[in-house]
Design a protein around this nucleic acid. Sequence first.
DNA 1: ACAAAAGTGTTGAGAGTACACCCATGC
DNA 2: GCATGGGTGTACTCTCAACACTTTTGT
Lengths: 228, 228
Amino acid sequence: MVVYENPLDDSFKKPLVAVDMVIFTIKDDALKVILVKRAIPPFKGKWAIPGGFVKINESLEEAAKRELMEEAGVDEVYLEQLYTFGEPKRDPRGRVISVSYFALVNSSGINLKASTDATEAEFFSAYNLPELAFDHEKILKYALQRLKWKMEYTTVAFSLLPEKFTLTELQNAYEIVFHKKFDERNFRKKILALGMIKDTGELRGGLSHRPAKLYAFKKKIGEIFEIL
Amino acid sequence: MVVYENPLDDSFKKPLVAVDMVIFTIKDDALKVILVKRAIPPFKGKWAIPGGFVKINESLEEAAKRELMEEAGVDEVYLEQLYTFGEPKRDPRGRVISVSYFALVNSSGINLKASTDATEAEFFSAYNLPELAFDHEKILKYALQRLKWKMEYTTVAFSLLPEKFTLTELQNAYEIVFHKKFDERNFRKKILALGMIKDTGELRGGLSHRPAKLYAFKKKIGEIFEIL
DNA sequence: ACAAAAGTGTTGAGAGTACACCCATGC
DNA sequence: GCATGGGTGTACTCTCAACACTTTTGT
């Protein structure tokens, strides 16, 4: 019934596969996403999330890490596959399947670079985005939903912070992502009860108020929860 | 720095994209998965999860639904994208990226068919699988984990049952998936408290014991929870 | 009347939420 | 000594888990 096609010779029509990266960070007390301005058509001049084609000999995750390095100059991040978007018409040039990833980065390590096919790279507030190329708005909304979920049920928040941080800084990260305030006492109680951070014994002083204890995450990023 | 390649002409090396389907159902009081025996190399004669290449003009979800129809003859199912596996060496023939889906089906609607590249299709207990081709064991483990998660936090279980069902049948479905017993009273209380099912007024009688009330799900499959 | 599954309520423990004051430092 | 953010405890509510007996039908 189905005509047998040999899909592995190159006469067979294949889609292209790209990785697209939603890179979140906290900067200036807001949740930011990195966007690039497209230097080439289609959507030339429009903002898009950074991405690129997967090379024939690299894994998807390698491609994602390569893009992350090319666009943001970072390698120590939380990285997770988000979803694969494959509508035939999502790219006007032809069939491109996009495997999207989302990354959480501590903003102090970021070094924005415009890559080959972009004129600029910039941070945008995740809650106040410009018009985006392709179906990238959909990807971003999806990523934001997933971020909130992950923050609520896992410990990914630590990836947004430096190695040592105060409980107030941690709480700020949560409040920024969720766009709401939490009760200090309950927040601290809960975080401490989770047993995932330890007191380093150090203090952050030099400010004109009581110095805050510095905490550190007990395990390396990614080892904690493997909820998928 | 990066040489500009035009990825959209066909001289560029592209991976192939396949969809692979983990199809779960409950049959004979066990959680089953549909596997097919491969008729062609590589892994000829080995069991694999059903799947096929994505056609150039169909979306990923369309490809998944097409495979589901070809292999199991069903169309009313819960269907969800699982993960995209893209290790360069996962298929010995060349680069094949697999977008995996998982499906939940009521076994009474299934009509197994061996497709073009398989000699047989069969149900296997999800907790007692044969050796599998490619990286399909990894895909299946991942799917099982996701299934449990979804059953715990959403209402996908209803997709495993007929339209009308008794509370005992629903509880059986949960016990089969989780491989453990639940307390009847607490289970019923919780399900009823969720407010997602309604009493149809009908009874399942004809058995030599007290007849059970038949319930139905209030909403159509897929409309309930959009947790991702 | 008996076998077989359906159906039903209460209690205790733990988690989450709400809420207000003292503490340590720099200036 | 005052301004600034850091740090702490208790009471109430609600959810979850444990637990055993009565009801309805067919034979």
